[in-house]
Write a protein that binds this DNA or RNA. Structure first.
Lengths: 337, 337
DNA sequence: CTGAAAGCGCTTACAG
DNA sequence: CTGAAAGCGCTTACAG
């Protein structure tokens, strides 16, 4: 049972059973060709000595570490943590451990330093919430390691992406605000150069135009590049009455800043977020938001990764974008005006 | 730049520079004894060939993988994801990568299967949000690997724990509800056998007693062992007017179940949570909650781990429990009655 | 069906 | 200050 600090290796199992390390290894990896008797001996020895294989060592020789890297900018936004939770569980079920990497929210990109850090762990695959920086795209491709961009379109990089129809989500938000009687609308994005952010913006703008309204360019903001209070100054000065935010956290930040000015959400203005983090956290529905079915989304990401690892054709896994439709979840932040 | 799929190893750097792999290794690891000239040659070769060290291989020989395992039951609760985010960043700053493990929320314990899985990755340290199951305590200790229990008292296991004064937090909740005029109180915990959960409960009960009230044993529930609706039946039948919940998520679950019955939070009853996840998510303060200063808490956990890895005496790091005091954050869920 | 040898990419002693 | 050899714990060919 308890064996002090001595670590047990295959050699110990071999000595204990009188077999060679080779044979022991074969049994443990269920390679063909060994007798029932040998198998029992090995199993018994492993239990008796408390053997735990060194998966790093096995990875070194075999070329497969059974490790997958997940890369994000932070784990603070529940969209990331929730999906990471689901995805890493699925990986676990398939015998893969997960190693996490963050770019510390310093940009929306996976940069060269970070990818080097990731690669030094020799993962079998990389699932990234971040788009690769321009100068890393070719580098990543050349490694030949399965790479999945999650929540983003992979096409611009000729990489495999698992994404949803973001434009449609933005459209839902726009149509909803219009139908509830909001007329002077604004969009609060994250970064000006993130495609998902711009897709939602475009869908939103399109919905307004279809209704005979316009999204004034001076009512488009990117919160990572401006201060919430400055944005609010402008919104109030211009009498904006409806906001669509790139995600729920941004919506909450805006609500906080706006209410500090004495305005009341749902009375003085309406606001729509994105991601439905309220549901992930079991919170009452307050904020109107767009729901992507994050569970299925995460599953789709994990499955594409597993398919690539299994060497299957990409086409083997149906596109999430084409099989799922986002819905608008109405909360109390957008009553009829 | 682009070098196809050929992976570059120390041997390639050695060949390119005309040095031995040994010397190259020494330079890269900044071991003493090499000339400026050699250093430049190596640096240049690494850049030219795009060398990325294999940290698994180096760990195999050196005995240190520069990897730390973080173990939790899930990443859904922002308390876990937020602290994991902070802790893993600090590890990263010190050159450690993080590998994550979940017990899939199947229990509040780190069980034998899970610890085996963790150990197979040969981490230099293990930081666990889960208490070790009884039959794993000696096993873990025998490995000699630095082990930190985060958010729990380590004393019962003779292990290093980094925890806050949970009883005090419970007391704050109790005092607050009493001071606001709530009289018929209940506690909603997580699991009946989790010490933290019982500590908060005890502090809460003590506060009530000090005020001449009592926490009726039939008003103590554990949500992982009962259905929210059954709990609500009982609460309503008994005219309970104030709830203290083990954490914010449980509070939200209760609010949802209670409001489905037509009661209004803050009018018909008051409720207090724990963790202040609203602040982590930048949400407006709705729920009254206990705030532990999660950033400092996480930092303390990371620092204890790093101290153990550096071989420092445990005493070198001040106890979080003794240097930090939780505070109550008042929201709109507990108005004066 | 089993074993002896070689090797994965590093670092650690040990020589020079 | 630099290098040749051995070894970390496995798995992969290759023999028998």
């Amino acid at each position: 049972m308890s064996q002090g600090k001595k670590k047990i290796t295959l050699k110990d199992i071999a000595a204990y059973t009188g077999l060679s390390v080779n044979t022991v290894s074969r049994v443990l990896n269920k390679k063909p060709y060994y007798t029932k008797e040998v198998e029992e001996k090995v199993t018994e020895a492993c239990r008796a000595l408390g053997y735990i294989a060194d998966r790093n060592a096995s990875g070194l020789r075999s070329g497969s570490t059974r490790t997958i890297a997940i890369v994000f900018d932070d784990l603070v936004n529940p969209f990331y943590s929730y999906t990471t939770d689901i995805i890493s569980r699925i990986f676990e079920e398939h015998g893969y451990n997960t190693i996490i990497f963050s770019n510390n929210a310093r940009s929306p990109y996976l940069d060269y330093d970070l990818i080097r850090n990731v690669l030094s762990r020799k993962p079998d695959g990389i699932l990234s919430f971040l788009e690769p920086a321009e100068d890393t795209v070719a580098f990543i491709r050349d490694t030949g390691i399965p790479f999945v961009i999650f929540g983003r379109d992979g096409a611009p990089y000729s990489m495999r992406g698992v994404d949803a129809d973001e434009e449609f989500g933005g459209k839902l938000a726009g149509q909803h605000l219009v139908s509830r009687g909001y007329k002077n609308l604004a969009y609060i994005g994250s970064w000006h150069d993130v495609k998902v952010c711009l897709d939602r913006q475009r869908g939103f703008a399109d919905a307004l135009e279809s209704a005979g309204l316009t999204l004034d360019p001076s009512h488009i903001f990117y919160i990572r590049e401006a201060l919430p209070d400055e944005i609010v100054d402008k919104l109030i000065a211009d009498g904006v009455d409806g906001l669509f935010c790139y995600n729920d956290i941004i919506a909450f930040v805006m609500i906080e800043a706006i209410e500090r000015r004495g305005l009341v959400t749902g009375r003085d203005y309406g606001i729509v977020g994105y991601d439905n983090i309220q549901q992930m956290l079991r919170m009452p529905r307050f904020l109107t938001t767009i729901d992507v079915n994050v569970y299925e989304f995460a599953r789709a990401g994990a499955e594409v990764m597993l398919a690539l690892l299994a060497g299957e054709e990409k086409a083997a896994v149906p596109s999430f974008r084409e099989t799922h439709v986002s819905v608008l979840i109405e909360g109390r932040s957008t009553p009829q005006r």
